[in-house]
């Protein structure tokens, strides 16, 4: 598939990139930012929301650097997965990065791109001809949702792996745009709507993921469901984090991915664990509560009912890893 035409810009600094954006905004011209390209270029090949200008962020030194406090948005996933510092301080984050797609994708894909990954749907991630033959959908060329008849908002699924882990770590993102920079907690970043997706303005560049010091006190685990154990996007994912006093939970966080249009924290479910002992009985209770609250749509490979059930299994496995106990046996082969 040949990529559609666009004008490519390769700024060498963040300030230069912002200047380009100012120009596009003033002239009313459409533009996209390109980082690893594994999401954007694949969508462009399907002629999905192609813009006139593409601004490459690959050569911006401001978007690089890995430490316990901050990860540059342009850092490649394989570098995060292999970073000694991330391994030692946030092993679940290293694992989540290591489990994204395939090794070849991780050679190009970045943490910023993973957080901003476009939402996915059977009726959207198709070739132009397929979409046109099926009269397209709300998120592309039409104004009708093909998943939920009559739905006026998009229910496409967000399938990023790093967001749930970073949500559990209390991370925030730095957004830099023509009007200055601002830090937004990841918990307030995503919008559970498949087209709007997040609070970042189109003109803003996600430059950095900031990790608070309290994240170092949290024990975090991540589990995901996907068809093949490589290449595929997750069909469900759960991160669990806890601050423990012995085996007693002082504070805990649960975040999901690939079951809605955003990566989301589940404070109502996590609340049930406060002050309780971390073990299989609690895991079973929280899993049941999480499953009851989940509403996945029929727009990824696995059926919504299966994904919903698997959320509970994944949560029990993640809690078992954090608590160091054996999860209850299950029939499924999810990772």
């Amino acid at each position: 598939m040949i990529l559609p035409s666009f004008e490519l810009h390769r700024p060498s600094s963040l300030a230069e990139a912002i200047d380009l954006v100012r120009g596009f905004e003033a002239r009313g011209e459409s533009y996209d930012f390109l980082s690893g390209g594994t999401d954007l270029l694949a969508n462009y090949k399907c002629k999905i929301n192609v813009k006139r200008h593409v601004v490459s962020l690959r050569h911006l030194p401001e978007l690089l650097g890995i430490s316990r406090d901050s990860i540059g948005a342009g850092e490649l996933l394989w570098r995060i997965a292999e970073s000694q510092e991330i391994h030692e301080s946030f092993p679940a984050l290293a694992k989540a990065a290591e489990w994204v797609a395939s090794p070849l994708i991780r050679e190009s894909a970045t943490i910023g791109g993973n957080l901003l990954q476009d939402t996915r749907c059977y009726h959207y991630n198709q070739t132009y001809w397929w979409r046109v033959a099926h009269e397209s959908c709300l998120k592309a060329e039409a104004d009708v949702c093909r998943v939920v008849p009559g739905e006026k908002t998009c229910v496409a699924t967000y399938c990023g792996d790093l967001a749930p882990v970073l949500l559990c770590m209390g991370a925030s993102v730095r957004l830099v745009g023509p009007d200055g920079s601002r830090d937004v907690p990841l918990s307030a970043f995503y919008i559970d709507e498949g087209i709007q997706r997040f609070v970042k303005k189109p003109s803003e560049i996600l430059s950095e993921v900031r990790i608070p010091t309290e994240a170092r006190r949290r024990k975090v685990a991540y589990r995901k469901l996907r068809l093949r154990q490589s290449i595929d996007f997750p069909d469900a994912g759960i991160a669990f984090a806890a601050e423990l006093s012995g085996s007693r939970i002082v504070n805990c966080w649960i975040a999901s991915t690939a079951v809605g249009s955003a990566a989301l924290l589940h404070p109502d479910v996590a609340q049930k664990a406060m002050g309780r002992d971390l073990g299989e009985p609690l895991a079973g209770e929280l899993a049941a509560a999480l499953v009851a609250s989940a509403r996945p749509y029929r727009n990824t490979f696995f059926a919504p009912g299966y994904r919903k059930e698997m959320l509970g299994v994944l949560l029990r496995r993640a809690m078992a890893e954090v608590g160091g106990f054996e999860p209850a046996p299950s029939q499924s082969a999810a990772g």
């Binding site: 390209g37 594994t38 270029l41 694949a42 490459s56 090794p103 070849l104 050679e107 190009s108």
Partner: peptide
């Protein structure tokens, strides 16, 4: 490093 030729712009 092994890279996907189909998703890497030549200009990059």
């Amino acid at each position: 490093r092994a890279r996907l030729g189909c998703l890497t712009l030549a200009a990059e």
